[in-house]
Amino acid sequence: MKNRLLWPVLALVALLILNVVVTPTFFSLRLQDGHLYGSLIDILRNGAPTLLIALGMTLVIATRGIDLSVGAVAAIAGAVTCTHIAAGGNPWVAMGLALALCAVLGLWNGFLVSVLGIQPIIATLVLMTAGRGIAMLITEGQIVTVDSPVYRQVGAGFLVLPIAILISLAVLGLVALVTRRTALGLLIESVGVNPSASRLAGVRARTIIWTVYVFAALCAAVAGLMISSNVSAADANNAGLWIEMDAILAVVIGGTSLAGGRYSLTGTLLGALIIQTLTTTVYTIGIKPEITLVFKAVVVIAVCLMQAPVRVRVGGRVRGKQGVPA
């Protein structure tokens, strides 16, 4: 467990050190009008939606699944809320509607995976493709802007710390609490590690899988609210674009294997922070921000190779459990 988090921690520390070297004031925080500001706060705030989605993704991946549709779901959540508010609706009702609709979308994904037995990657590809269309259908292809102080709080508000950070951390705490205090974590891991043994032990795999997809969709919905609230607008095309990829990366960098089984929420937190810090770092050390992607690729490959199932030993011999047919 500790071992698994070693590389992500080192990567994050290295990034932070690099930042301090370049910008000595990197760690400084200041309080202004009761709001906390600073580079670290920025990282946390910008990384909040990714972290949220990655939390849902962690549980999905732990059951040997994957959810590609979270970006589209996030866009739908923003679209529903903004359209409803723009039509004169109550922002709370609007957000409630969005969460409810996204829960239904999660049920849909869970249905395809657990009942119909479709591979998760294709099952969620359907909604990934159609979801943006649905979001645009809701906004009728427009960027819907709203002016709702209540709604604005979700993504841009402050309660000493930005509310987005508080929400993400609250969800992190909640997931940690729920998975450890109930038996959900145990059953998720057991289904992910050994589905047939779990079945023979009487585990309701179907319910478990269904639960994680609904949860992932809800996380995506909240993240979608944050993204859209931050700009007070719903952009069906670009809201949450590629965020599923960032989320999957965060999970994988955090040491949870795409093959399912043991997962680490702390790892996912680290993964999300690494991705966001990387983006910030590239910016602070004066490289064109567009090139972030190159660094992201390099970090992904490096961290993945460190954790690769097949290690390269000195002398270049490859070891692993591949190759021996049963």
Binding site: E189, S190, V193, N194, S196, R262
Partner: peptide, 8 residues
């Protein structure tokens, strides 16, 4: 294959 959940 059908008994233990090895990682747990």
């Amino acid at each position: 294959a059908e008994g233990i959940v090895a990682d747990l």
